[in-house]
Design a protein around this nucleic acid. Sequence first.
DNA 1: GCCTTTCTATCACGCCTGTGATAGAACGCA
DNA 2: TGCGTTCTATCACAGGCGTGATAGAAAGGC
Lengths: 214, 214
Amino acid sequence: MPKHVDPDARRRHVVDALFRVVVREGLQRTSLRAVADEAQLNIGSLRHYFASQQDLMRFAMQSMLDRVESRLLEHVERIGDLGNRPRPERLRLAAGFLAELLPLDEHRRAEVTVFLDFNTAARTNPAFGDLSRQAAEGTGKLVRRVLTRLDAAGALRPGLDIGIETERLTALLDGLSLRAVLHPEVLNPRTCADVLFTHLDDLSMPAGTPGSAH
Amino acid sequence: MPKHVDPDARRRHVVDALFRVVVREGLQRTSLRAVADEAQLNIGSLRHYFASQQDLMRFAMQSMLDRVESRLLEHVERIGDLGNRPRPERLRLAAGFLAELLPLDEHRRAEVTVFLDFNTAARTNPAFGDLSRQAAEGTGKLVRRVLTRLDAAGALRPGLDIGIETERLTALLDGLSLRAVLHPEVLNPRTCADVLFTHLDDLSMPAGTPGSAH
DNA sequence: GCCTTTCTATCACGCCTGTGATAGAACGCA
DNA sequence: TGCGTTCTATCACAGGCGTGATAGAAAGGC
């Protein structure tokens, strides 16, 4: 088994470089040569790990989605069972969880930036079509699940249409991300988080209502 | 003064062609030659009206923003004074007005698509920087004005933070547009409009108060 | 030692891009 | 008619792109 380097590590290294280029220059200007330079690799080496540009791009987008998903799972692990928390804390936890999707720090900001570029490219580039759709449906289902759980725990206002509220909250998250990434001087992370919390608070029980059934 | 053709009409013709290419192929693949072909013009003629690619692109983005603005103004004209309408109708009118920003029909859909591509490009292309920022601030101020008017007319819930609510509604509109453009099979125009109305209804007087919706 | 696989590095090709330069047609006015 | 401006059309160039081909280095198993 000849194995000088770990190919998976190499691919991760290349993908990291690609993300940096995308953030700095945009997906439009993210060429094989630019990525190779950023990764300090020869373009020949790079092509040894990725058969074609499309392979690289798809792999990169898939990696990005995987990373987001694993960070979300990690967050779920961290908060554990939220069934037996006091109601205001449940809201706070839900907000903190959904905030993983917002560009509130440099790390998430880079990720959301890449996410946005890939997904807008997917509109006209069939190579990304399935991944983009899967991502959009994924966040939708995620938001729906959060709302459903909150509702089941009696934390939400009665009479809400969960379908509509799912679309509303999902669109709100997407919109906050979009504006925060494109116009950080207009929408800063703090306001971003405030808006999210305000929204969840709006969906919750009015103050003074008896809390969790159970 | 020799004048065979109307230069303004020509420029409009070219910009229309450019928009079609952007919608169909994405801004990334919108080259001078592609636009010239779409406009059924020789690239030489095209370059007679636009000194450089950057000139064309900036002109196109500015045109798009002008068209959106004029459609909004036209809508304002159409509804006239809304001060003396019954409250539920005021909400409906405000929703209809803000819906001008959503891709609810093919025309607006194309416009929002172009808007999105230009604004995402503006993140890394300084040529669009000022226009993009101006657009983002414009919609923000627009939303704020709508909310302020509704509030002044007593149509809104008391205790709302107009600043936060402006950001929230703006992000919601952006998010709806984004999802409707990128994933029309997930978020259809009908749901889009429903979400907007639900949101405005949520901001209005609490349920049970005379005049509040449904 | 040798052999095979893995990896790095480079060349060349065809394609597309924006753009400078330029020639000629179309047209209105004198 | 001829003149000058406006417009159309084309060529050529340099630069960037993805990619096929290929040669050579590096590394481990035998």
